[in-house]
Nucleic acid binder design. Structure first.
Ligand SMILES: [Mn+2]
Ligand SMILES: [Mn+2]
Ligand SMILES: [Mn+2]
Ligand SMILES: [Mn+2]
Lengths: 147, 147
DNA sequence: TTCGAATGTTAGCCGAAGCTAAGAAGGATG
DNA sequence: CATCCTTCTTAGCTTCGGCTAACATTCGAA
């Protein structure tokens, strides 16, 4: 019992870090630098909150900062950002694939992404690239064989 | 921007309440009463933590308690529990449907359930009951009006 | 009936993630 | 240069959800 809940709790601990490095990487890709004000607007939280969060990220080795300078990602931060962006994109694309509207897919994927294990992510990717799995006996039988 | 993040933050605020009322309802269904020790074992946290959490649930009108007595759900608590259990079951069943192993489905659904909107839940239910959407050239649109 | 184990409560601590309010640093414009 | 506005930092507060340690209550055995 309760392996689930421990996983959910630990997912939440890394969730903020994941969203921040992803956003920082996006700003850097987009306009070459990321300032804390960019994150204030992006996450819709206060300057003080961004400052505290960035301090934790620096403590944990994901970013480097200097007073009044842009925020830079460490190699570790870049690795995490890339992995998170891919995972996020997969989850969002999968929601669209099952018929969810674009607006809802954007919102739901933002929360869901952090709780998707490697195995579930692979299942989603497989469906996105190979199509729906074959229905096993007892199912409602609709798509017939392949394509 | 950031509508997503506000939703994710507010999902987290209700997440613990949802898991607790669901567990309490399960214990009551199973053995007629729920004692705080049941929750200690179920969530694998300490007595003190369960006590604090239950106090918040009572403050918010989901449960009633009396010293050394079992924990009882209010009507509001029962409503929430029922809705959460259904949603949880749907998410777990859907993960199985896309080919995730039972053990992983149990773990991932515990976190994912809290971030699944009504619309996404409906999409999952539709697939569980009607089978995969028709594949149509160019995308995943499922033509045909409803039903 | 007393006593010890199991169960429940309380007090006090911590870190994460939010906030407000105050002030410092820097840059554009006169 | 001085000024003013934007940007950034710092201090101090809150709630939540964890924890440990100490204490209280209940209840079944001896
Ligand atoms: Mn996210
Ligand atoms: Mn979550
Ligand atoms: Mn649940
Ligand atoms: Mn859950």
């Amino acid at each position: 019992m309760s392996k689930q809940h421990q996983r959910t709790r630990s997912d939440h601990a890394s969730e903020i870090a994941e969203d921040y490095v992803e956003a920082i990487a996006d700003f850097i890709a987009d306009k070459d630098v990321c300032r804390s004000g960019d994150l204030v607007r992006h996450f819709n939280v206060t300057h003080a909150t961004v400052n505290n969060t960035i301090a934790r990220l620096e403590r944990d080795g994901f970013v480097t900062t200097a007073p009044y300078q842009p925020i830079a990602l460490t190699a570790r931060g870049r690795r995490l950002a890339t992995a998170c962006r891919k995972r996020h994109e997969t989850v969002e694309a999968f929601l669209l694939k099952i018929g969810v509207s674009p607006a809802t897919a954007v919102i739901d994927s933002e929360g869901i992404e952090h709780h998707v294990s490697r195995e579930t992510l692979d299942a989603m990717k497989r469906i996105l690239s190979d199509g729906w799995p074959d229905e096993v006996a007892g199912g409602s039988r609709r798509g017939d064989g392949l394509h």
